[in-house]
Simulated assay, not measured.
Amino acid sequence: MSDVRVLIVDDHDDTRRMFVEYLAWHGALTLEASSVAEAIVVLERELVHVVVTDVAMPREDGYALLARMDARPGWASIPRIVVSGHSSVLEASERAPRATYLKKPVDLERLLEAIATSAVRAER
């Protein structure tokens, strides 16, 4: 997991910090954003290997972030993981077909595995 740069996007500070701390403890280099607008700024400035985004956020949701990523050639290939307590697997697979979906509350070990798998796929 070392040297994997993960952007965590979630409007809930507690959830975002929990993910950041857990991933950092396991060697990931973490970046964070509390909104789609902040995530775009991070993506413009930093190299990101995997994006983990909450779906339900005010103003623009996680699906909007993924759509904006798809519109940018350099970002379209970044692996993404969507987390939600509201969306179903079916909805997530329809709205974010290239993303891995994790239901909230997220099992942190499962998140770590999904990031590791996504990072390996991105290297190929």
Rank of each mutant, 00 (worst) to 15 (best):
D3M: 10
V6D: 03
V6Q: 05
I8E: 02
I8Q: 01
D10H: 10
D11V: 05
D11S: 07
D13Q: 15
D13T: 10
D14W: 10
D14P: 05
R16F: 09
R17K: 12
V20W: 00
E21H: 12
Y22V: 04
L23S: 05
W25N: 11
H26F: 13
G27S: 04
A28K: 06
L29H: 11
T30N: 01
L31Y: 15
E32N: 09
A33T: 04
S35D: 04
V36N: 02
V36T: 06
V36D: 00
A39H: 03
A39Q: 04
V42F: 08
L43P: 08
E44H: 11
R45T: 11
E46T: 01
E46G: 04
L47N: 11
V48C: 03
V48A: 02
H49F: 08
V50C: 03
V50W: 09
V51R: 00
V51E: 00
V51L: 07
V52C: 14
T53Q: 03
V55H: 08
V55W: 13
A56T: 11
M57P: 01
M57W: 08
P58H: 06
R59L: 10
E60P: 01
E60G: 00
D61A: 00
D61G: 11
G62E: 00
A64G: 10
L65M: 08
L65R: 07
A67P: 04
A67S: 14
A67T: 13
A67F: 07
A67C: 02
A67Y: 09
M69I: 07
D70M: 14
A71L: 06
R72K: 14
R72T: 15
R72Y: 11
G74V: 10
W75Q: 13
W75D: 04
I78D: 00
I78P: 04
I78R: 00
R80M: 01
R80H: 13
I81D: 03
V82H: 03
V83W: 06
V83S: 10
G85F: 12
H86Q: 12
H86D: 10
V89S: 12
V89H: 08
E91F: 05
E91W: 06
A92D: 04
A92L: 06
S93W: 06
S93E: 06
P97I: 09
P97V: 09
R98C: 09
A99P: 01
T100I: 14
L102N: 05
L102G: 09
K104S: 02
K104T: 05
P105Q: 03
P105M: 03
V106W: 09
D107V: 09
D107Q: 11
D107H: 14
L108E: 09
L108R: 07
E109T: 12
L112P: 00
E113Q: 14
A114N: 00
A114F: 10
I115C: 08
I115W: 11
A116L: 13
S118Y: 08
A119F: 13
A119E: 02
A122P: 08
A122S: 14
E123S: 15
E123V: 07
R124G: 15
